[in-house]
């Protein structure tokens, strides 16, 4: 993948990290341990996996609106993902990132992509770079000299 994969900004910022694709939607409230950064939802296919510093691919959100608080708490602790890519924008997830930026200056960009881009992202190995601008444009790329930013 050498080209830039386009997306739409939900929350702006830049980040790079190893992609982690969740096999199922996760409710951060009740399903995620913000102190240790681990998925703790009983029976979730990724139970026990650490999200810390990962570029999280989660198709859609689910669960309680208190997930905003839990995500913001994880970003405060530094145990949350470095960025999120989703198929559908979600207000509850976005608010977690918006408030973490307001309170702590922690930036976790969120990008929404279409089905084609999602499929390509799911096959990527190695780190990915997320760039999400305030004007709404966003893209994902492999970091490295082949991409002039």
């Amino acid at each position: 993948m050498s080209e830039l994969l386009p997306g739409r900004t939900v929350e702006s910022g830049t980040a790079s990290g190893l992609p982690l694709r969740l096999a199922a939607p996760l409710s951060f409230w009740g399903g995620f341990d913000a102190e240790n950064g681990l998925v703790i939802e009983q029976g979730h296919p990724d139970q026990g996996v650490s999200l810390q510093g990962r570029l999280l691919l989660m198709e859609r959100a689910k669960g309680s609106s208190s997930s905003s608080s839990v995500l913001a708490e994880a970003l405060r602790h530094g145990t949350g993902p470095c960025a999120m890519v989703m198929r559908e924008a979600d207000l509850i997830i976005a608010l977690g990132a918006i408030v973490a930026r307001e309170l702590y200056g922690v930036v976790m960009p969120i990008v929404v992509v279409d089905a084609d881009v999602w499929q390509q992202l799911c096959t990527v190995e190695g780190r990915l770079l997320v760039t999400a601008l305030d004007d709404g444009s966003a893209w994902l790329s492999l970091p490295g000299p082949q991409v002039a930013l």
Partner: peptide
């Protein structure tokens, strides 16, 4: 839900 609740 944690310190963030209070900080906000």
């Amino acid at each position: 839900h944690g310190q963030t609740s209070l900080d906000f």
